[in-house]
Every structure is written in structure tokens, then in C-alpha cells.
Design a protein around this nucleic acid. Structure first.
Length: 207
DNA sequence: CCTGCGATTTGCT
DNA sequence: GCAAATCGCAGGC
């Protein structure tokens, strides 16, 4: 494996501006990755947008599925980084995570919101309930519906089609942290990351 | 603007 | 058996 900088950034680890993110980008601290994904581009099947909100879930984290150890559902989190972990939430919504940390460390970043940029018409067709671009991808269940990500994409590689992940185009946006949404354990951890001032984030709006 | 509730499936106790 | 990393709609202010 190549040397990984201790204080890597999306730019350093992910390569030149706007370059496709490789496995090395994900095989690091899940908190660093969650923060640096803000401002990166996520497309799936040719549609998507700029990531504006993420959450970090680590191995020894009561709020993380990995807390119970290796099961049929969580085995992807314990596998190699740079893969998708997709699971069914509330029996209805497929939520998309990126597996992080070296193999065996079981950590993942939940992708919670995008600012739509590419294939907006196709996304709107998939999400007739959306009233505008502001609520097209403003939540983890909304964005998978808009992008067409399903449980069939669990364990897929993130550095290949149909996934496309690109580093920030220019200067990465300022990032703010806040408590994670919709959990009942470890609620005090400030492991939700979002682009400061973005109107495309989910509710509740970060302070 | 806000609050409450039903949908619908799975995974783990 | 039940809680769950959510969403959209209805209703009230």
C-alpha cells in the first residue's frame, strides 16, 4: 500500500482537483473522510451532485451497525474501504454509506444530502414529491431515490461505474459539525458534517 | 412555520 | 417481538 499522509486532504489523497477518488482516499480516519467529502461530487448512473452533508459512524460506536460485530448485514463494513454499504431503513428507504478505514476497522460515512448538479430532470422524474431542487436530495433516503441507488448496489466499488466520485473542483467549502440525526445512542457526538450555509442540507438545519 | 403519524421490511434479541 | 442512521402528508397555528 502507498504511504498515507497523517493529515491527508481530499486534494492530497484524492489526487488533482476534480480527479476520481481512489481506494486510498477511503482507507483513512472515517472522520477525516466524512469532512473531506463535503464539496466532492457524487454521481451514480450519470446523475448526481455535490455532497453537502455526511455523517461518520465508527467501529466502537453504539449508533453504528458495526457495534454488534460481524453479521450478514454488517460484513461489508468490516471489509475493504472504498465500497458502498447500502441498507434498508424503516423498511422503505435505501441509505448509502461509504466504507472507510483499513479492512477490519468497520467504519462508514452516511451520505445525507447533495446539491443537485447533473441529470436534474431524471432525478425529478424519480422523485415527483420534490417541490424544487432544494428538496430533491436533501436527505439520505431522498438522494438514493433520486440517484437510483438500491440494495443491489451494496458492496459495490466506489471507484468504478456506475459510481463516480470526484474531488473538489476549487477550494473546498467551509464545513460545520453538529449532532447526528435520527439516532438514539451516542447522540452527543458532533459527527454530522455539512457545507456551511448550504440550503440543500436535510432537516434539522445545522446551527 | 410546526407537530404527529402511518408506511413497510429487516435484523437482531 | 420490536426498534429502526426516514419520508410525506395532514392538520394546527
Amino acid at each position: 500500500l502507498p504511504t498515507i499522509p497523517k493529515k491527508g486532504t481530499a486534494r492530497e489523497v484524492g489526487g488533482p482537483a476534480g480527479a476520481r477518488l481512489g481506494v486510498d482516499f477511503f482507507g483513512r480516519s472515517v472522520h477525516d473522510v466524512a469532512r473531506e467529502l463535503i464539496g466532492c461530487r457524487l454521481c451514480f448512473g450519470g446523475v448526481g451532485g455535490t455532497i453537502v452533508e455526511t455523517e461518520a459512524y465508527e467501529r466502537e460506536d453504539p449508533a453504528s451497525h458495526s457495534f454488534v460485530g460481524i453479521t450478514e448485514r454488517t460484513k461489508v463494513m468490516f471489509g475493504p474501504p472504498g465500497r458502498a454499504y447500502v441498507y434498508l431503513s424503516y423498511g422503505i428507504h435505501s441509505l448509502l454509506n461509504f466504507v472507510c478505514e483499513p479492512k477490519g476497522d468497520a467504519a462508514a460515512v452516511l451520505i445525507r444530502a447533495l446539491e443537485p448538479t447533473t441529470g436534474v430532470e431524471q432525478m425529478r422524474a424519480r422523485r415527483p414529491a420534490a417541490r424544487s431542487a432544494l428538496d430533491l436530495c436533501s436527505g439520505p433516503g431522498k438522494l438514493t431515490e433520486a440517484l437510483g441507488v438500491t440494495l443491489a448496489d451494496n458492496a459495490s466499488r466506489l471507484d468504478r461505474d456506475p459510481f463516480l466520485l470526484l474531488g473538489p473542483q476549487g477550494d473546498p467549502p467551509a464545513v460545520v459539525t453538529s449532532p447526528r440525526v435520527g439516532i438514539t445512542k451516542a447522540v452527543e457526538k458532533p459527527w454530522r458534517f455539512s457545507a456551511r450555509g448550504s440550503r440543500y442540507v436535510s432537516k434539522p438545519r445545522p446551527a
